[in-house]
Simulated assay, not measured.
Amino acid sequence: MGCVKPETPDHSRSPESNDHVSTPKHEANERGWQAKALGADNALRTAVDRVRPAAHSVGQWLAPLLQRLMQWLAPLLQRLMQWLSPLLQRVQDAPAVRRLRERVAPHVPESVKKAPRLRSMQVGAGIAAVGVVGLIIGGVAGGNDEHDVEEAAVAAPIEQQKADPPQTRAETKSQAQAEEAKQDAPLGPPVEGIDVSNHNGNIDWKKVAADNKKFTFVLASDGTDFSNPKYSEQYHGAKDAGLIAGAYHFARPDDSDGATQANRFLDIMDYKNDGKTLPPVLDLEVDPNGGSCYGMSVDQMHQWTKSFNDTVKQRTGKDPIVYANPSFWKQCMGSTDTFKDHDLWLAAYEVDSPTVPKGFQDWDFWQYTDKGEVAGVAGNTDINQYKEGFERLKQLAS
């Protein structure tokens, strides 16, 4: 046989070579598939862009909700364990149980003997886990980075180990009541009250209460020299009639320093934390003799006010309520937010809704008229609203 040269393969016809074939029809099909793929990709991106804000909003709404749930659940479980621990200990120490344990102990395997301890450890670990979850969710909701969350998770078991020893049932109940008292009372409809001074004279407080007025502020002192001669009669008369009462001091920063006037005011007021007394009030207004800021700069007014407020806080444990109107706060206080955490008693007449001075988030009390007519009070008097309802007013007085 002769040597036959192998036929050169026809690569143009092999299946592997079809990708390299370029025809108008093939190119059209390829462009069609590319267009479809690009369209699908764009549609997917558009859908993701539309869903992302909603998902982010849901996350922002859900995170604080879960955080509050964990914050509520963790102390509840801890209180439950604190309540159960002494009870279980008393059962374990009972003579009958002790005798039974002594009889049964020799016949119980070691693994079973350790079971109660294991269960206690598991419960403790569960409480610690709740704390860790709460801290982690709190960190996410607050925008902390991963490092902060890891530190919180590591710290939680350590804090659990440092927990106070088991308390008695009475102590646990007292602690629970104290924690409940710290929570906000339910929000209610606004309630009305009046503020009075020596100019209002004798007041029939029972008639005031019957006129559905729930609180009053009484002038106690003015500057360094004046005190309301009717103060004790008006203040205690209001309390005796069932009203929640507070006292206010008319500030005169050019008379003396803030601490001096605060101490004099508190001596006259005779503040008592009896559940019926509102925090002391600092009445800040322009100089009645000249309409100015008592010849003081904005910074000097800040310092005077801070001195007064700090003295009140030191002696009563309460931040004083600040009384002011928008024009004074702008003119004499420079719209500062230094006192934004104080309750604001805002004076604004003949308006449907008062303008809150820059530096405060909102008003708490609103003196909306100085021409009010109230049963039991001769002539016109100031009428005020407390916006958050009677239950929170009582809480403010506690």
Rank of each mutant, 00 (worst) to 15 (best):
245 A>F: 04
245 A>D: 02
245 A>W: 04
245 A>S: 11
246 G>V: 06
246 G>E: 06
247 A>D: 02
249 H>I: 00
249 H>P: 00
250 F>L: 13
250 F>K: 10
250 F>E: 01
250 F>T: 03
251 A>M: 06
251 A>G: 06
251 A>H: 01
253 P>W: 04
253 P>L: 02
254 D>S: 05
255 D>L: 10
256 S>C: 14
257 D>N: 14
257 D>Y: 12
258 G>Y: 10
258 G>Q: 06
258 G>K: 11
258 G>F: 05
258 G>C: 06
258 G>P: 08
259 A>G: 10
260 T>V: 09
260 T>F: 05
261 Q>D: 00
261 Q>Y: 08
262 A>W: 00
262 A>T: 00
264 R>H: 02
265 F>H: 09
266 L>T: 06
267 D>A: 14
268 I>R: 14
268 I>H: 14
269 M>N: 12
270 D>K: 13
270 D>L: 05
271 Y>I: 03
271 Y>F: 15
271 Y>H: 11
273 N>V: 04
273 N>D: 11
274 D>C: 15
275 G>D: 14
275 G>N: 07
276 K>L: 09
277 T>W: 11
277 T>L: 07
278 L>M: 12
279 P>D: 09
279 P>A: 13
280 P>I: 04
280 P>L: 06
281 V>F: 00
281 V>K: 00
281 V>Y: 00
282 L>V: 07
283 D>V: 05
284 L>F: 06
284 L>W: 06
284 L>Q: 03
285 E>Y: 11
286 V>P: 09
286 V>Y: 08
286 V>W: 01
287 D>M: 15
287 D>A: 15
287 D>K: 15
287 D>R: 15
287 D>E: 14
290 G>T: 15
291 G>C: 10
291 G>P: 02
293 C>V: 11
293 C>E: 09
293 C>H: 12
294 Y>V: 01
294 Y>C: 01
295 G>D: 01
296 M>K: 14
296 M>R: 11
296 M>Q: 11
